[in-house]
Design a protein around this nucleic acid. Structure first.
Length: 420
RNA sequence: GGAGAGGUGCGAGAGUGGUUGAAUCGGGUAGUCUCGAAAACUACUAUAGUAGCAAUGCUAUCGAGGGUUCGAAUCCCUCCCUCUCCUCCA
């Protein structure tokens, strides 16, 4: 959420930003409502001030035994007017809030302006894009080696769900443990294991609601959502808190399964593990001071890259254009791994600085010193990494001519085997 | 799921429907004292909205939302959360 005062003072800039992010929020309506709101507030607060003063007088009169009937009668009428104005005010504020919650975050000045992914900018690339003669894709490999089973996934749950079996399950678990261990041991993140279901307040806090309700699994009886990413519970871990300035930056690394309905995406990258309804991911989340957040974003990307390098992948880093960014982000880098079988790039991580957008929604602040004004923190998060997609890239890249898979060296201690 | 207890400021903890934004104690900050520290004493110690260049004023906030009332932390209703006991359970 943006600051209403900021919007009021920079309507044209905000309007331009909405266009660049392909958003059609009605800012003129918002400004009209904002003016109405302030008029109502002035009116109702004047009346309340008067009521408070007269109530005082009534109190004094009653104590001294004087008659206060006329004032009580007057205040009864004033009370009715106040009630009506409060009602109007509430309606207007609800409308304002509804618009505010749907206005996208301002893109940072360094973000390329563009309509879509076409305008994303490749920042750097590591490794070479190889082509292979004897390639099998991860579906064939998974089936032939008996480590991935989508047929039974479809039977037991539905399309878009799969089983990891035997060495496949072990490899998946190795990836999760490897990412958790390196991030916590080497890179200063605190491990955190969040709940996989959250309430709607949390989803509003991180920006998935109100816009993306249909993309998530929702359990009506309990009014809970399955998390689409661990970003939601981990960021909301500090919701409504005043953080200790000395503790910043706060960095968490958390594993969770991620649940996505992927409604409307059928037919696009749906084969096997490329796009599933449930996948595993280690998420990195940071709470930082405003002055450092862009440095922290670069560090976050570095952290993720270090894993891709250790795994020996060919990858590239993309700076997303305004049109391809998510609604809440100020600046986002996507990391993509080269798939020699698909002959294309697979997105395995997305690292975003949200500035104060989430912190304002979730009310996460800190005080520099005990006497200074509270400030919103900046929040960042990035996948570090989505293991299911990594699994696809890994199987395809490390397959041998005989159809077996070499396990990358960094994972062997976690697997207990070298070859699948 | 059943029965009960409770939710007040940074913490503990008062609070007869009427100067209660809220006693008291503790914590924190600053000052006095001291060579320095401790102790003692003194002062300050919330958030947000709104008007204003500002000083400052006004409004709201005692789990949340409604209601009663001229006036609600205090009375009524609904919901949420926490704790205890029973039940169930990995």
């Amino acid at each position: 959420m943006l600051d209403l005062k900021f919007i009021r003072e920079n309507v044209d800039v905000v309007r331009e930003n909405c266009l660049r992010k392909n958003d059609s929020s009605d800012l003129d309506l918002l400004m009209t409502l904002d003016a109405t709101r302030r008029t109502l507030i002035q009116g109702v607060e004047d009346l309340k001030a008067r009521r408070n003063a007269v109530s005082q007088e009534i109190s004094l009169k009653k104590r001294s035994g004087d008659d206060a009937t006329s004032q009580i009668t007057e205040m009864r009428e004033v009370g009715d007017v106040i009630k009506n104005l409060d009602e109007d005010l509430r309606t207007v504020e609800e409308q304002i809030d509804d618009i505010m919650m749907r206005i996208p975050n301002m893109a940072h000045a360094s973000v390329p302006v563009g309509k879509s992914a076409e305008e994303n900018v490749e920042v750097r690339r590591e490794g070479i894009c190889i082509e292979r003669e004897w390639r099998k894709d991860h579906l064939e490999l998974g089936r032939d080696l008996g480590i991935l089973d989508f047929e039974r996934g479809a039977k037991v749950t539905g399309t878009g769900f799969g089983f990891y079996v035997g060495k496949g399950a072990r490899l998946e678990r190795a990836l999760i443990n490897y990412f958790l261990d390196t991030n916590t041991n080497d890179r200063g993140y605190t491990e955190i294991l969040p709940p996989f279901m959250v309430n709607s307040t949390s989803l509003r806090g991180t920006g998935q609601l109100p816009k993306n309700h249909d993309d998530m699994y929702y359990m009506e009886r309990d009014e809970l959502y399955m998390i689409p990413t661990a970003e939601v519970p981990i960021t909301n871990f500090h919701r409504d808190e005043m953080l200790d300035a000395a503790a910043l930056p706060i960095k968490y690394a958390g594993y969770s399964a991620c649940f996505r309905r992927e409604s409307g995406s059928y037919g696009k990258d749906t084969r096997g593990f490329l796009r599933v309804h449930e996948f595993n991911k280690v998420e990195l989340v940071k709470f930082v001071r405003a002055e450092t957040s862009y440095d922290e974003l670069e560090l976050l990307v570095n952290d993720v890259e270090s894993h891709l390098r250790a795994l020996g992948f060919t990858y590239r880093v993309l700076l997303l254009s305004t049109g391809d960014m998510t609604f809440g982000g100020s600046k986002t880098y996507d990391l993509e791994v080269w798939s020699p079988c698909e002959q294309k790039w697979l997105e395995v991580s997305s690292c975003t600085n949200f500035e104060s957008f989430q912190a304002r929604r979730a009310n996460i602040r800190f005080k520099d010193t005990p006497s200074s004004k509270p400030e919103f923190v900046h929040t960042l998060n990035g996948s570090g990494l989505a293991t299911s997609r990594i699994m696809v890239a890994l199987l395809e890249q490390y397959q041998r001519p005989d159809g077996h898979i070499d396990v990358p060296a960094c994972l062997r201690p976690y697997c207990g085997f070298d070859v699948i």
